[in-house]
């Protein structure tokens, strides 16, 4: 139990674990690890309840049916796994969020997901799953997020971050 209660593991151990988990996902589910398309599944499920005709007329949403799939479950499990890990090490945080930070997070989340959908994946789908298959798309994505991320971090360095 003690190892599970440690606040953190070596990043190499965590990385190797994620690599091995990728083997499991490819083999057991015929699916690479990925997260960003689940946000579209959430939208599809909500719009299916509110405006089913619109979903039927939008192939980008309707082609995702059934909306609650392996990848959707993956994201639910992900939140639960992180929760338990933080609980076991008593490192769960619940700090208040300033209103500036709130808007920064909303804007960041918006740009992040819009970019991911345009590129066809996020840090999981392109960055890890794509790059590990030596996909050209994955490595281009990896390089581009570091280029613009480093620039953005420099610009914002002396502000509230």
């Amino acid at each position: 139990m003690s190892i599970l209660a440690r606040p953190s593991w070596s990043p190499y151990a965590a990385g190797a674990g994620i690599g091995i988990l990728s083997w499991f996902a490819f083999w057991s589910a015929d699916h690479p690890l990925g997260v960003s398309s689940v946000m579209v599944r959430v939208v599809a499920a909500i719009e299916q309840a509110a405006a089913p005709a619109h979903v039927a007329a939008t192939p980008y949403l309707s082609k995702l049916a059934p909306f609650f799939d392996w990848e959707f479950a993956l994201v639910i499990g992900l939140a639960a796994g992180a929760w338990l890990s933080a609980r076991l090490s008593h490192s769960a945080e619940d700090s208040p969020v300033s209103s500036t930070r709130r808007w920064q997070a909303i804007l960041g989340g918006f740009l992040l997901l819009f970019g991911a959908r345009l590129a066809g994946g996020c840090t999981s789908g392109h960055g890890i799953s794509g790059s590990l298959q030596l996909a050209l798309s994955g490595w281009i994505f990896f390089a581009c997020i570091f280029a613009s991320g480093m620039l953005t971090a420099q610009v914002l360095k002396n502000r509230e971050l």
């Binding site: 740009l111 992040l112 997901l113 345009l118 994505f141």
Partner: peptide, 28 residues
């Protein structure tokens, strides 16, 4: 892919998480 990646990088620094780690952080 590059245009999406460049937009993604800006969002990742503003938010401080990527989609997967944001779900993890939300779970915490």
């Amino acid at each position: 892919v590059p245009v999406g990646g460049l937009i993604f990088g800006v969002g990742m620094v503003l938010l401080g998480y990527c989609p997967g780690t944001a779900v993890a952080a939300a779970g915490e």
